[in-house]
Computed example of a mutant assay.
Amino acid sequence: MHQLIASPFLDHFLVVRPGSTNGMKIGKGRFEELRSNPAVVPQWLADAARKAWGIEKLTSVMVREPAPLAYGRASWEINKGCDYDCEHCYLGLKRFEGLTWENKVNLLTVMRDSGALWLQITGGEPLIDRDFPAAYEYANQLGMMVSISSNGSQLSKPRIIEILTRHRPYLIAVSVYGATAETYDGLTRNRGAFGRFIKGLDAAKEAGLSLKLNIVVAERNVHEIEAMEALADSYGFPHQVFTSMSPTIEGGGERLGTQAAKFVVKREPFKGCNAGHTFFHSDPWGKASICKVGRDPQFDLITQGLDGLRQLGYVADSLQLRTGGCSGCTLSGSCYTCRPLAKLYQEAKAPLDTYCQHGGR
C-alpha cells in the first residue's frame, strides 16, 4: 500500500499520508514531476516526508490523476441499518439494505473519478455492514483519505480493529449518548450498548486510532453533559457538543421532542456552503444528492456515473433559493438555517424558533 498520496484538490495540489491529519501543499510543477514518473521518489519529497511524518525511507507514492470534475470530498451512507434504535435519529426508518458488492465497487470508483480526495463513510452504523472491511480497504487502494462516522459499538471487533490498524483512517467520529449505562442504553434503546461503546473506545485508544467524540445532547441525557465531557477527556480524545435535533430526512417531526430545548446553542448565520459544488453525498443505493439534508432530486451514480454529478451544481443553487414562508424575508441576511434544512423543519411543522430567528424576536 502507498505511503503517501499526491493529488489535485480543488484549485491546489496536495501530498497527504493515509491515517494522518498532516499534509503539504505543492506547486503544479512538482505535482507534474511526480505524475510524469510516479515510480521515482524525488529527493525534495523524501526530505519533506521525513520532516512531516517521520518517514525514513519513502518508497511508494500514489499519484492521482486530475479529474474531469472538481469535487474534493464525498460522503456515503454504506447502509442505513443500525444496531441502535436512538430515539432522536434523523434517519427515521433504518432499513438494512443497499448495493451489491459489485456496485459498491462501481460507486467508490465513481467517487474517486469525481476528484474526491476525502471520503466519509457513514450510516446507520457503517461498521455493521458486511462489506465494510472490503469497501474501506478498496477506498484506501483508490487513494482516498477515509473518515468514518460510527457509534463505536463495533470498534473492539477483531476484524474491524485489524482493518483500521492496517489502513489507518483519517478520523473516526464517534457519537456519545451518555456517561452511564442507564442513560446510554436508554437513549439508544439497546441493552448493553454502553459496555460495547466503552470497549470500542478502549480498543481504539490501544490501537492509537484518531478519534473525535461527538457528544449528542438530548432531554434524556442532558444531566450528564459534564460527565460525557469528562469521559472524552479521560481518553484524551477531542470532543464537540451538539444540542440541536433535526427532523427526519423525510420531514417528520417525531424526533424533535427529544431535544433539550434549554441547552440549544444559537447557530451562526448561514453564509452559504459548497454542497453540490465541491462535495456531494450518496445514499446506500448510490443515489447522489448535494448533501445529507438536501436529498431531492437525486442522481443514480451506478447508471449515470459522472454525468449524474455534473447536474448537482445547478441543483444546489436551486435548492438554496428561498421559497414558501421564507420568500421575501427581511431577516434573510442573518438567517442561520440553510434552505434544505429549513424545508424539513417546515414540513415537520416545527416551532418557528427551532429554525428561524423570527421565533426569537
Score class of each variant (00 low, 15 high):
residue 269 P to G: 05
residue 192 G to T: 12
residue 108 L to Q: 14
residue 105 V to C: 08
residue 72 G to Y: 11
residue 110 V to H: 03
residue 144 M to I: 03
residue 114 S to V: 06
residue 92 G to F: 08
residue 233 D to W: 01
residue 107 L to S: 05
residue 99 L to T: 03
residue 113 D to T: 00
residue 142 L to K: 04
residue 294 G to R: 15
residue 332 S to F: 06
residue 353 D to H: 14
residue 83 D to R: 11
residue 125 E to Y: 03
residue 209 L to R: 01
residue 233 D to P: 00
residue 292 K to E: 15
residue 215 I to E: 06
residue 179 A to W: 01
residue 358 H to N: 15
residue 274 N to Y: 05
residue 19 G to W: 06
residue 106 N to L: 03
residue 62 M to I: 04
residue 277 H to N: 10
residue 73 R to I: 00
residue 6 A to V: 11
residue 6 A to Q: 11
residue 146 V to L: 05
residue 38 P to V: 10
residue 134 A to I: 00
residue 331 L to W: 08
residue 66 P to V: 12
residue 3 Q to W: 06
residue 297 P to K: 15
residue 169 P to Q: 08
residue 45 L to Q: 00
residue 52 A to I: 12
residue 343 K to P: 00
residue 265 V to W: 01
residue 282 S to T: 14
residue 305 G to W: 07
residue 22 N to D: 12
residue 269 P to R: 02
residue 179 A to Q: 00
residue 99 L to D: 02
residue 194 F to R: 10
residue 237 F to T: 04
residue 357 Q to Y: 04
residue 215 I to L: 13
residue 311 Q to R: 12
residue 124 G to H: 08
residue 2 H to I: 00
residue 73 R to C: 07
residue 236 G to W: 01
residue 104 K to W: 01
residue 308 G to P: 15
residue 46 A to N: 10
residue 312 L to D: 04
residue 80 K to V: 01
residue 348 A to D: 10
residue 167 H to Q: 02
residue 148 I to W: 12
residue 154 Q to Y: 10
residue 14 L to G: 08
residue 339 R to C: 11
residue 193 A to Q: 05
residue 174 V to I: 12
residue 344 L to R: 13
residue 155 L to Q: 07
residue 272 G to W: 00
residue 252 G to K: 09
residue 223 H to K: 07
residue 147 S to M: 04
residue 211 L to H: 09
residue 206 E to I: 09
residue 16 V to N: 10
residue 51 K to A: 15
residue 4 L to E: 05
residue 30 R to F: 13
residue 204 A to T: 02
residue 50 R to M: 09
residue 80 K to C: 07
residue 183 T to G: 07
residue 336 Y to K: 04
residue 351 P to E: 15
residue 49 A to N: 09
residue 69 L to A: 07
residue 78 I to D: 05
residue 151 N to W: 06
residue 21 T to D: 12
residue 120 Q to P: 00
residue 148 I to A: 10
residue 361 R to V: 11
residue 287 K to Q: 15
residue 144 M to V: 03
residue 330 T to W: 07
residue 327 S to K: 12
residue 237 F to S: 04
residue 129 D to Y: 06
residue 38 P to H: 10
residue 164 L to S: 10
residue 218 A to D: 00
residue 333 G to P: 00
residue 257 G to M: 02
residue 124 G to Y: 06
residue 44 W to R: 07
residue 298 Q to H: 10
residue 172 I to F: 03
residue 303 T to I: 11
residue 250 E to Y: 09
residue 129 D to F: 02
residue 276 G to Y: 15
residue 191 R to A: 09
residue 229 E to F: 04
residue 160 I to G: 02
residue 205 K to Y: 06
residue 337 T to M: 10
residue 287 K to H: 15
residue 107 L to K: 09
residue 89 C to G: 09
residue 77 E to R: 02
residue 239 H to S: 09
residue 311 Q to C: 00
residue 164 L to K: 11
residue 309 L to D: 04
residue 108 L to K: 13
residue 356 C to W: 07
residue 49 A to V: 11
residue 115 G to S: 06
residue 59 T to A: 06
residue 229 E to Q: 13
residue 360 G to D: 13
residue 23 G to I: 05
residue 81 G to D: 12
residue 166 R to Q: 14
residue 360 G to R: 14
residue 39 A to F: 14
residue 218 A to T: 03
residue 217 V to H: 05
residue 50 R to Q: 12
